Amino acid sequence: MIVTLIVAAEISWWIVLGLALSARYLLRWQRTSTVLLLGLPAVDLALYALTVLNLRGGAEASWVHALAASYAGFSVGYGPSLVRWADRHFLHRFAGGPKPLPSPKYGPERTRYEWQVAGRTVVSAAITLSLITLLVPLSAGSAHYDTFAQWYWKLGIAAVVNLVVAGCFSLWPKEAPEGVRVENGRVVAEEKAPADRL
């Protein structure tokens, strides 16, 4: 049942986002778009609430319940950046907006980008672990910490790895190769080597 709810929540989240962007750029309904975007967290809260109700109803605690909590945590940590990504692409595809820029690849911009990703991962992991921890008292004892223990390790490792990667980019910034012109960390041109003359 929980797996079905997770899939339904994922589909619902993207449908609501699509409706919000359509209302904003195709119908010019700014207020409607804003209301729909504010409704995105409601999808995550509904999934988590149904997860708690499932446990309180006597379901045996399993990794699937933790997965539902991690979905909510991921949405909190990465949701705003996903909305901005979808907004830029929708604007370009359907409303004549500029082509979205790729992620920076070099220089301090790349370092800053890696720290942003690390920050989102840390927030996502912290929210997820908080929600997983709350499942125990909220489920009237039907869930046990042992059931979810592995998630603490997995999410902790994911957060640490992201922080280490960002730290490495701070210590050793990635420089553009020779012959590549870069602006704001993105490749704008590649200089071709002159052909050898006979």
Rank of each mutant, 00 (worst) to 15 (best):
M1K: 14
I2V: 14
T4K: 15
L5P: 08
A8M: 15
E10F: 15
S12F: 02
I15C: 05
I15K: 02
I15F: 03
V16W: 10
L21Q: 02
S22N: 05
A23I: 00
L26G: 07
L27H: 14
L27G: 04
R28G: 06
R31I: 13
R31H: 06
T32V: 11
S33L: 02
S33K: 01
S33H: 04
L36A: 10
L38C: 12
G39Y: 03
V43Y: 02
L45C: 14
A46W: 11
A46M: 13
A46G: 15
A46H: 12
L47V: 03
T51P: 06
V52T: 12
L55M: 13
L55Q: 02
V64Q: 12
H65V: 04
L67V: 00
S75Q: 03
G77S: 03
Y78K: 05
V83D: 05
W85C: 02
D87A: 01
R88W: 10
L91P: 12
L91G: 08
H92M: 01
H92V: 05
H92C: 11
A95P: 02
A95S: 09
P100H: 07
L101E: 14
P102G: 09
S103Q: 11
Y106P: 06
G107P: 10
G107M: 11
P108R: 13
E109A: 15
R110G: 06
T111G: 04
R112Y: 07
E114P: 03
W115Y: 15
W115R: 09
W115T: 11
V117I: 07
A118H: 01
A118Y: 01
G119M: 10
G119C: 04
V122P: 05
V122K: 08
V123A: 13
A125G: 11
A126Q: 06
T128L: 08
T128H: 11
T128S: 15
T128G: 01
L129T: 06
S130V: 13
T133F: 09
L134F: 08
L134T: 03
P137S: 02
L138T: 07
A140E: 06
G141C: 01
G141W: 05
G141T: 11
A143L: 09
H144L: 05
H144P: 00
T147S: 11
Q150C: 00
Q150L: 12
W151C: 07
W153F: 13
G156A: 12
A158G: 04
V160Y: 14
V161S: 05
N162M: 08
V164T: 10
V165I: 14
V165G: 14
F169D: 08
W172I: 10
K174F: 09
E175Y: 00
E175F: 01
A176L: 08
P177Y: 09
E178D: 08
V180N: 02
V180R: 01
R181I: 13
V182H: 06
V182G: 11
E183W: 06
N184A: 02
G185H: 13
A189H: 07
A189E: 12
E191Y: 00
D196E: 12
L198A: 08
